[in-house]
C-alpha cells in the first residue's frame, strides 16, 4: 500500500527529463553559459564568480526546471583532444547548444569545421540545434549577420531540424532566457522522435 501511494505521488510530481549537450571550441564560454543558465532558472542559486571558472576537464553537469520539464545540461570540454568524446553522448541527447566565440575571428573557421563534423553525425539527425554567437558584450565582436552566413553554408547537413542562431552574452546573461525557451519548445515538439528519459523509481 505504501509502495502504491508513494509511487503514485512520484508519478504525479514527475517531470519529463531531457538532456542537452553544450558544445563548442574551448574558451567559447560554454561553462560560463551553463552558469548563467543555472543562475537564471534556479531560484536561490548563487552565481559563481565568472573569474573562477577554469578549463573544463571531463564535463560539467547542470539541471534546471523550465516550462514543466527538466533539462539536464552536459557541458563537455572543447579542446581538440576532448572532441572525440562528443559522439559518445549524441545518441542520448535531446538537443544541442553550440557556442561560438564571436570575438575570436581567427578561430571561426575552426569552429565551423567542428560544427560541420558534429551535425553530420547520424546520431544527431533531427535533434534541435541552438547556435549561440557568444560574447556579444565585447564591442569588437562579429554580429549575428556576420556569423550566420558562415554557419549556414552546409544546408544539406543541417537537414530537417529546428535550428536557430542567436546572439548572447554569457557574462551579462543577455539572450540566455530566449534561447532556452526556444529550445524547450523544440524539444517538446521533437519528443515523439526522442522521448524523454524519465528517472527510474527505485522501489
Amino acid at each position: 500500500m505504501y509502495t502504491l501511494l508513494h509511487g503514485f505521488y512520484k508519478y504525479i510530481i514527475q517531470k519529463d527529463e531531457y538532456c542537452v549537450l553544450i558544445l563548442g571550441l574551448d574558451n567559447a564560454g560554454k561553462t560560463t553559459y551553463l552558469e548563467a543558465t543555472k543562475t537564471k532558472f534556479t531560484k536561490k542559486y548563487k552565481a559563481m564568480n565568472p573569474n573562477r571558472i577554469t578549463t573544463t576537464v571531463g564535463l560539467n553537469i547542470g539541471k534546471i526546471d523550465v516550462n514543466g520539464v527538466r533539462l539536464n545540461f552536459w557541458d563537455l570540454g572543447g579542446q581538440q583532444e576532448l572532441q572525440s568524446l562528443w559522439d559518445k553522448y549524441y545518441a542520448e541527447c535531446h538537443a544541442v547548444i553550440y557556442i561560438v566565440d564571436s570575438s575570436d575571428r581567427d578561430r571561426v573557421s575552426e569552429s565551423k569545421e567542428t560544427f560541420d563534423r558534429m551535425i553530420s553525425s547520424e546520431h544527431l539527425a533531427g535533434v534541435p540545434l541552438l547556435v549561440l554567437a557568444n560574447k556579444q558584450d565585447i564591442p569588437d565582436c562579429m554580429g549575428v549577420h556576420t556569423v550566420k552566413p558562415i554557419f549556414n553554408q552546409n544546408a544539406h547537413l543541417i537537414g530537417a531540424r529546428d535550428i536557430m542562431l542567436m546572439a548572447t552574452s554569457a557574462l551579462t546573461g543577455d539572450g540566455v532566457d530566449e534561447g532556452i525557451r526556444w529550445l524547450v519548445d523544440c524539444i517538446k515538439r521533437n519528443s515523439v522522435d526522442r522521448p524523454p528519459r524519465n528517472h527510474d523509481d527505485n522501489l
Binding site: A91, E92, D201
Partner: peptide, 26 residues
C-alpha cells in the same frame, strides 16, 4: 529511440506499476 530506452536500466524493471501492486495486494 530504442537506444535511449535501453540506457534507462534493462537489468530490472523498476518502474512504478500500479496494476502489479494492486493485484499483488488482492
Amino acid at each position: 529511440m530504442s537506444k535511449i530506452k535501453k540506457f534507462s536500466g534493462s537489468f530490472r524493471y523498476t518502474q512504478w506499476d500500479p496494476c502489479l501492486i494492486i493485484f499483488q495486494i488482492v
